[in-house]
Structure formats: C-alpha cells, structure tokens
Amino acid sequence: MNKTHNTQKAKKYGMVIDLDKCTGCGACMVACMAENNVPFKKDETNKLDSITWMHLYKLTNGKAFPETEICYLPRPCMHCEGAHGHPPCVSVCPATATDYDHGTGIVSQIYTRCFGCRYCMGACPYHARYFNWWDPVWPEGMKEYLSPNVSPRMRGVVEKCSFCFHRYQLAMDKAYHEGRKELEEHEYQSSCTQACPAGAITFGDLNNPDHQVHKIARPDNEHGGKPSATNVFRLLERLGTNPKVYYMSSREWVRRLGDNYLPHEKTGEIALGKQKGHH
C-alpha cells in the first residue's frame, strides 16, 4: 500500500461485484439491514414496498433444461456520478435532500430534509431508492440493538444505500486522531463487502490505482469511468448514469443482461460518443 499516493486527490469509492462468485446467499442483504437500521415488516412478501438497500436479483439465461443457467446479482445504490457529479436522482430533488459528495463520490440522502415527493425514485433506473410507506416498528427489545451510528428513518421519506458512510466517518475520525489524513484500504469497507462469504464484493477507492477495485475494474476516467478490464461491466452503461458499482462475469449472457442492446449490437460494445447529452 502506497500511503503517500494521491494525498490531495478526491476519492471515488466504488465496488466490484464478481457475479461468478455470488451464490445468492443474501448475507450482504442481512448485513446491510442490520448495519443500517433498515426497517422491516412482519410480512415482507411484497418486494415492491419492503426496503432492501442491497437487493438481490435472480437472472436466468431463459433457456430450457439442461441449458438453464442462473446468476444472482446483488444491487446496492450505484452512487452514480452522472456527468460531472449529476446523478439521475440528485439534480431532480427539489429540496436538496440528496447530494453528490465530490470528495468521496458518495450520493447522500438527508432523511430530515426529505419531504417524500419520491421524484428521485422515479428518476433512478435501478430502483435503488426506497420509500418508507410505514413508520418502522421494531420487534420487542430490538431497539436496544439498533446501530447508534445510523439514524433510523421515519414514515414518508426516501432512503437508500449509503455505502455505509458512517463507517467512513468513523474511520476518518480515527485517522485524524492518529494524525493521518488518509485511510488505509481496509479501514473503510462496507458491511456487505465484509459479510460476503464468497468474497464476491470488493470495495475501495476507484481513483487509487493501489486499491483492489481499481485493479479489477480499471475504470477509464477519461470516458466516464467505463471499465477497461475484460468481463467487467456496469448496469445500464449507455444511459450515461456513470455508476460506481461494477460487475464482472465470465458469462456473456450475464453481461448482456446488464444493459439494453439492439439485436445487431454486440455485448459491451457501446460507443460512448453516441450517448446524447444530458446535464
């Protein structure tokens, strides 16, 4: 680890998820819920009104047995950068309740500022944003186990994955206390990353060539962070959302399901110049 590297440079925290390793066990979802005081209901069968910051999709190649293949795809908030720090959700929020932090690349959500118009949810193509349709009801005694580092949310506001930002704050506090301004790679890791038993999730600073995420994804910052590594892709790359969550899979059908393609287009071959501008 090169401690002196990029001391003044802005961070860009991101993730690479190896879909070939993911078994769909859901440990990342559970860890996320426990870490972030995510409320739940007695009956969670309706996935469209229950909150899962980290959501697990089951993908299939659509072929009949014996050629059927499935793949599990964990989906946190993509912490999109958009063009010049304008993710789909941030610029639409009328009350500045969500913001793009240029210092870390994290898209924040200010629960006490959000008044629940849900425009950001409509803007997000990944369905990464969730609305609190109910006030949280914790089972008997569970309040004692809530994390003191994450504020619980009330009814009527939007919430989403924060890349465990409170962990970043705690790590930075510790670093300052020790007279450092920079974090080691292992000092700030999201809870889903640490919970994954298969080691499918890698988390770190995409701007730091020494970090594993950078080494795996090799983001091309000249071209909106597009991955230059083989088999690495981002969801809905061609919409120009510029997400900071990368996926990798050796299977072509999985990579093709990561974006919309016209029938004649080859997987992963999207001319970035073709994307018409937004702000």
Binding site: S91, V92, C93, P94, A95, T96, A97, R113, C114, F115, G116, C117, R118, Y119, F131, N132, M154, R155, G156, V157, V158
Partner: peptide, 26 residues
C-alpha cells in the same frame, strides 16, 4: 396529500434546489 411528509412541504421553497424541475413547478 401526495408528499410523504406534508408538514415539511415548505422545504421545497426554503431549501430549494434550483436545478430541479419540481422546484420550478412548485
């Protein structure tokens, strides 16, 4: 009625994000 926290509706004016189309609407 439509907003989740109607008592905070004034945030759209007070804490306005001038880039939001919804703010312009409001």
């Amino acid at each position: 009625i439509d907003v989740g926290q109607p008592l905070r509706s004034w945030f759209i004016f007070w804490h306005v994000n001038v880039h939001s189309m919804l703010a312009e609407v409001a």
